[in-house]
Simulated assay, not measured.
Amino acid sequence: MSLDSQQLVAFAAVIEEGSFDAAARRLVITPSAVSQRVKALEQAVGQVLVRRERPCVTTDAGASLMRLAAQVSTLEREALREMGADGAPIRVAVAVNADSFGTWMGPVLARVPDGVLIDIRIEDQDHSAELLRAGVVMAAVTTEPKPIAGCRSEALGAMRYFGMASPGYVERYLPGGLVEAGIDRVRQAPLIRWDRRDALQDQFLRKLFRRDVTVPEHYVPTTGGNTEALRVGLGWGMMPEQLSRDGLVDVAPGRYLDVPLYWQHWKFESVTLTAITAAVRKAAAVLRGS
């Protein structure tokens, strides 16, 4: 059985854009035409490939076809470029946690090859691999060391985090710091999370107290907003060492949390993905202290 390339392209566009309407706008066809192509592809393979949700996501069966569609499209465009023929830009989707993107990942963007459109998906490092498994991204910065099926994995180094807060906050809630204040005070001291998936603070508290600790929590889902919330005394939180800690104090002096990071990417011979991987490897040297 051979697969129809137009059907594959329509299917991939639905998943990448999140809806049939958005896919239609990108492909400059009607939503009905997109729907017909996806249904025809599903009939051809005998399986449902798209969960019609908001946004649309792949089924488990669709994940492998997402990888195939993106790989075929990438290799086709690379071949056309090598032949000197005009080709559409190559789109590369990458999942990155916000702290990496806000600190050491910047130089990677400067090394994106000409003719490549980069699509950064911000996702917590403990969950970015989910996008890789779903076929939504070609590569991800993740905490998972074991290669995902169809992927290669390489260690990048570790991001070091410190518990930080404003001096006024520490004086009010945690005199002497987290350990010295004691677990009863810690349970009353609000902390700041990125979102409900952010578990760094839990890991840090578990490291300090050897147990789970339930505390009041705020959610501030931007790097800049998170830092500002720390500075105005909204709560305490974890901050990567690469960010400026001016105006803040360490809530557990001498204690820190190292989070190992890995670069996982699809296992196919693409000059574009190879170039981006090389750029990530070079930028991540700061995590290895080199």
Rank of each mutant, 00 (worst) to 15 (best):
P113L: 15
G289T: 01
H127G: 05
G62I: 00
L75A: 07
A33V: 03
V170A: 10
V213C: 01
A284F: 02
R67G: 05
R172T: 14
A149Y: 09
Y161M: 06
V141C: 03
P147Y: 07
A279H: 07
T274W: 09
R196A: 13
V96Y: 00
M66W: 05
V112Q: 02
Q264M: 04
A199R: 15
L8Q: 01
A70M: 08
G237F: 08
R111Q: 08
V137I: 03
R231K: 14
S270N: 10
G235Y: 08
S290D: 14
E130H: 04
T30W: 06
P221F: 09
P260K: 13
V45Y: 01
A155P: 06
K207A: 14
A283Y: 00
L287G: 12
V249P: 05
T103P: 01
D198H: 14
L208D: 10
P147H: 13
E171T: 15
A13W: 03
A10G: 05
V286I: 12
R196E: 14
Q36E: 11
V112R: 04
A93Q: 07
Y262G: 12
G150K: 04
L27E: 00
H218L: 09
K39R: 15
A140G: 10
R172F: 04
W104S: 00
V179F: 00
G177L: 04
V45E: 02
R206W: 07
V136M: 05
D119H: 14
G177H: 03
G235A: 13
T143V: 13
R281I: 01
W194H: 15
D4R: 14
V232I: 15
A275L: 12
L261M: 13
E82Q: 13
L287H: 01
A139E: 03
F209P: 05
R197S: 15
F20T: 08
R197C: 07
G163E: 05
